[in-house]
Design a protein around this nucleic acid. Sequence first.
RNA 1: GGCGACGUAGCCAAGUGGUAAGGCAGAGGUCUGCAAAACCUCCAUCCCCAGUUCGAUUCUGGGCGUCGCCUCCA
Length: 481
Amino acid sequence: MNSLRLHNTFGGTKDVFEPLEPGLVRMYTCGPTVWNFAHVGNLRAFLFYDLIRRHLRVAGFRVTHVMNLTDIDDRILDQAMHAGTTIEEYIEPYARAFFEDMATLRAQPAEHYPRATEHIPEMVDMISTLIKNENAYIADGDVYFRIASFPAYGALSHLDRAGLKAGARVATDKYEKESVSDFALWKKSQPEDEEIGASWEAPFGRGRPGWHIECSAMSKRYLGETLDIHAGGVDLLFPHHENEIAQSEAANQKPFVRVWLHSEHLFDATGEKMSKSAGGFTTLRDLIGAGHDPLAIRFFLIANAHYRSRLRLSDDALHAAAEQVRRLREFNERVIRTAPAVSDDAGLAQRTAEVRIAYREALDDDLNLPQGVGLVFDHIREANAALDAGRVGPSNKASLLELIDDLDAHLDVIRVEEPGLAEEVERLIAEREEARRARDFDRADRIRDDLRSRGIALEDSRDGVRWRRISPGPVIEAGRS
RNA sequence: GGCGACGUAGCCAAGUGGUAAGGCAGAGGUCUGCAAAACCUCCAUCCCCAGUUCGAUUCUGGGCGUCGCCUCCA
């Protein structure tokens, strides 16, 4: 029985989710504009997509997930121009970096990563249709969407044109628009555009696509005219998603999206929204360079706060996340290596079963991973106590491992393969054991301290010495790019 | 100016009309050669005021505060 409920931005209610085609979810998510490295705020949104995707699969759906790469826009044009490269040459390192970052953060790959410049014909087709239907018009070589032709405009964002800030708003496009709110579908080629490979032929004149049309055209190409889920950061709500609706519904005469999902912003330590254009922003590379563990960063971004809550990036929060990841991994390893007691603890079995159900319910309730994680941590304390007391039987052990599986299906930070044991670490541990047996504790402690300073912590236990990786030294505030 | 969100312990954060999950940090303890890990104990009445209610942190209204969108932006 599917009981997944999602908060639909359109309408603002939490509804049981059912895809159009039973069992298959068609999902489109707004990906990066590859004009620069993604910052952690961008990555929060991308990991949110990953969370949706993972939980849809937990809930039993097959998922076709499309995430676009915007490889043409004004910023890319500017940068390529300055760099003296084509736009294709300019974006490539950033596109590569995007995929690297996603892999570092263990995001599951989408089924398709279409690039705007590889789908110009689809966009041209759609624009032609819009012109034919009089939803768009040509003005001095540019093509604009005629918002007046689409009465439902504003329904998603609840911004009606009358309420738009009067006077202070400067139209950034050209002047021949019928209305200031009309947005560009196609921009006439400038001479420089040709040199950097940013110009295409079209029936309505040589030029390049506006930003919004790519998502309408590419989602249709890969997922059809009606999507089950369309997700993005809240900053895309207006105008981007509003414009997508207008374009797609005007062109296709079909409902565009059934459920809109928007993730909240990430804020920096000063409380300012992280934004590329605002200047200061932190990249994944910055955080890793400052000594933060990618798994902790992943945990922080998806589990520290609900996706519709604002999240503030701070060293403390990252450290807390790292500790939580550490505890989870520690617990997992402990359960795995524990030889089961002869009999099971009925109370523990009962509680584990309850927590597994409650965890699933939390995720089914609009992807409330923070709550789910809290439930599991609560139970881990009880389970650890049972382990201390040797009360964990074979069935207990198996269900605890299943609980970890449940959690890691979303988190994916627990059962992550560590790089193989460094032989040197093992050798030093053996050396230290020898020293300890000889009661040469000075030498033993020296070895332990030495390893610690190199990011390896040792723990003595009844079952022998264990080691694990830790963040080397105190981490510093990430630099700005 | 329009639209909207938020304000829960030192920090992060979940949540419900019936007296508040979890994590980090901190204090004490058990265990340990010492540690670490783990466990135990301690650590909030939910911005303010008024109202509805048997009862509100959770509903309504007002206030104060913070922030987002309205322009490129995940």
